[in-house]
Design a protein around this nucleic acid. Structure first.
Lengths: 192, 192
DNA sequence: CTCACTTGTCTAGCGGTGCTAGGATCGGGT
DNA sequence: ACCCGATCCTAGCACCGCTAGACAAGTGAG
């Protein structure tokens, strides 16, 4: 059965190549530039090959989203682990979140803005997404304040960060005062 | 010159028809369904007519955005004018904002999510957009707290509302606890 | 009242999109 | 050595935003 195993390995490698190429293309030229034709050309296969791995473009976005969510969770945990005390953990968390969104705009969009066909906030939400939320919850839960449900607080804080991230990048907010906005947000929302 | 005036009137009416039709179509079937072909068919003219009014689809989105921003400003001012005291004004503002986003998702997207070719947060930002921000500023400025620039506070509060609005509608946040999130946000951010 | 001309509109088409049917080709098992 | 199934590609569908160029209708001059 070694032949079949080799084929499966090669197939898995090609699938990773598709996701990585889609991500790179999206990051360099935006998701609009990620067309099935261009993607197929980059991986040096024909279009229909993409459809033997994914149902369609939306699922490719979803795959990039899952990969990105896992990375984001790692980044958030690394940042908070390096900080002392609840307050500085929250600040580090917020900065890291916004930094991730700014450095990986296409991946961020795949996770939080585009339709990747993923389920959110329900039973069968994919693990990486649940875990990214868990990473937020770990640090934010400890500054929710008395009588406030940690998950609810996390949702509000997360939504605020998301708003800052998207409005800033869309040019709706001037980039200049970004740091002062984060400071204000943490000051007011977190109970330390 | 009465003939020319009549033509200009008719032309202006047709332009309003285009914008209204685009908005209706977007609200009913989403912006993806707003194609130049479908739009042209609805207004009972051929495609090129659209391009004699707007440079392209993006400008049509922009026109819907401006119309929507003006309506939003009216709604926000009406809600805050009917409330007594800074605290209840802010609550009314937040609820009205989120309500507007939920009831007019396509218009909200045109204003804050899609690219309508509009300039934001700069000198030549169109008046309706500046005015919508001004409407936010009027009520939020009075709860910014000492030493905090009202505009900066408004930006942060607005971003939070935007995050709640978009994440909720994208299914990233469960719709169930929406009111409690608003309550928490106002409680923490506003200084009364 | 006729005629040239401007103005407005439409038909047809370009290059692109996501996606798929059906034929060719290649490699493994017998 | 051959058959057969898995794998891949060519070609094409219907749609997209946008535009060139033909055509008709209404205008003002003679």
């Amino acid at each position: 059965m070694s032949v079949q195993e080799r084929k499966e390995r090669e197939r898995a490698a090609r699938e990773r190549l598709i996701v990585a190429t889609a991500r790179e293309l999206a990051e360099n030229q935006g998701w609009d530039a990620v067309t099935t034709r261009r993607l197929a050309e980059r991986i040096e296969y024909s279009q229909p090959v993409l459809y033997s791995h994914f149902r369609g473009k939306r699922e490719i976005i979803g795959a990039v989203a899952l990969e990105g969510a896992a990375e984001m969770a790692v980044a958030l945990r690394a940042a908070t682990a390096a900080a002392d005390g609840p307050r500085s953990r929250v600040t580090a968390l917020a900065r890291t979140y916004l930094d991730f969104a700014e450095r990986n705009p296409a991946v961020y969009d795949a996770i939080f803005r585009l339709d990747g066909g993923l389920a959110f906030a329900v039973e069968d939400t994919p693990e990486p997404l649940k875990d990214a939320f868990a990473a937020l919850l770990e640090s934010l839960g400890e500054v929710a304040g008395d009588g406030v449900h940690p998950a609810l607080f996390t949702e509000v804080f997360w939504a605020s960060l998301h708003g800052l991230a998207t409005l800033t990048r869309a040019g709706r907010l001037p980039a200049a005062e970004a740091d002062r906005r984060v400071e204000l947000l943490v000051d007011r929302l977190a109970v330390v």
